[in-house]
Write a protein that binds this DNA or RNA. Structure first.
Lengths: 241, 241
DNA sequence: GGAATAGTGTCTTTGAGACATTATAGA
DNA sequence: TCTATAATGTCTCAAAGACACTATTCC
């Protein structure tokens, strides 16, 4: 035989990928959840869960590709910001047996999303992230994964340009500031914010945006759509830290 | 039957855990590697690799427990600093088939380690991390994983107390500073270093250490042996960033 | 007293936070 | 001219970096 065989005496855990998809909608941080199917033998029937599922070894070249597939499947968004969050594996997290999931988290502008309802996942919807965390009731260990994703997001927003991925281009600095404020859950000083964003040199002017009333703001787009920028220090109001 | 069965139509990738174990030895950052066995059907025979292996669903309650087991196995160290690094999974990383590994990274004082040579892993040894990275030749995608681990370590050392886990207690501030300098690969100002460490309030005086010549330094131990402390800002010499 | 290491003090500068002020548009 | 939003300026202060200085031990 050409390919060395894997040890057959090791029963394999099953392998899944879950994606925590964030957006900002109605001034709040939202997370995408899907309803578990209620067929026979299905775990957590009818409960809400993170979108995800089995790795398909024929279809998925690697874990990231698998995450992108599941993401495209539910949102029809092709290339949002996507990063690995961590993995969770244990004998008990899935009643069907030892399983390990590779969790990713994604950021996307709400406007870009086309929720694909129906099909196998009975329903798909945006939920207020903090409300879900306040009364945890997701399937599997998804409350824990969501908690980790929100913590990671909030902490990275303190020192990166991540919120820019929640907006469609061109966006304005006041809009971007608003994204920071919504995710962080607190106001941010305008002057310092602007200085910081412009000093980080990751934005490109694309001309004044018209549409709005009053003084029209400058429009910007990302110089590099692929990666966030890291700031040298975190946002932090005087008293804290 | 009591337990719902997993979908049998999904061939499962196999699941492994690998551990990047760091220590500081002879003024250099070292990583623990094991030599791949050379039996029939074994991938990468004779090549060096990160310690790790299959998740044993009977023995391992969860991924962390599996990592701890593999670590104890090779070093006889029971509870070093251990954190999840990420996961790597693809159709091609292991010639035996689609596999996903959950990578952890660990820090331990060199004195605590009892290398367990022999057995299945023909040999186990410490290697200079930067030398390994300079001429990548590890089995599987372990060069990539090591790269990620070193990057993560160096970046976290800039703003956390991680290097304290490379020392046995009690340790002195000059010793701790040395750990920072070795990992970062650059000198650190003594005064600022001391201010910073003491301000972070994670150390406890345990009396002057005798043994050494000249002025005897104060000995310290960690207030909380479980978690590192995060500093509000990174170390960064003037010119940079 | 000299040498070597441990530990402290002082000056400067950077950059963030707070808040006041100016700029530009529509009504 | 008034109002609402966009954008900039100014003052203060905390903390880091650089480096000089003091302290304690052994020889």
């Amino acid at each position: 035989m050409a390919k060395p065989s894997a040890p057959s005496d090791f029963p394999r855990p099953f392998t899944t990928v879950d994606v925590v998809i964030f957006t900002v909608l109605n001034e709040a941080l939202k997370v995408l959840l899907v309803q578990r199917p209620s067929g026979r033998g299905e775990p957590f029937p009818g409960q809400w869960a993170l979108p995800g599922g089995y790795v398909d070894i024929d279809q998925d070249a690697n874990l990231l590709a698998c995450a992108r597939r599941k993401l495209l499947d539910k949102t029809s968004v092709r290339s949002p910001y996507l990063e690995q969050l961590g993995s969770w594996g244990s004998a008990t997290r899935d009643p069907r047996g030892w399983s390990a999931t590779h969790a990713y988290f994604a950021l996307m502008p709400a406007q870009a999303v086309q929720l694909s309802k129906g099909a196998n996942a009975a329903d798909v919807n945006w939920f207020d992230a903090d409300e879900v965390l306040a009364s945890p009731s997701l399937a599997f260990d998804h409350d824990e994964i969501l908690r980790a994703a929100v913590d990671r997001l909030r902490s990275k927003v303190e020192y990166t340009s991540l919120p820019a991925f929640l907006l469609t281009e061109p966006f304005t600095l006041p809009q971007l500031q608003k994204m920071y404020e919504i995710v962080l859950g607190r106001p941010v000083d305008k002057s310092g914010f602007r200085t910081r964003m412009l000093a980080a040199d990751f934005l490109e002017e694309v001309g004044v945006v018209e549409s709005s009333a009053y003084r029209p703001p400058m429009g910007y787009r990302l110089k590099d759509r692929a990666l966030p920028v890291f700031f040298p220090r975190t946002f932090s109001p005087r008293g804290e830290q």
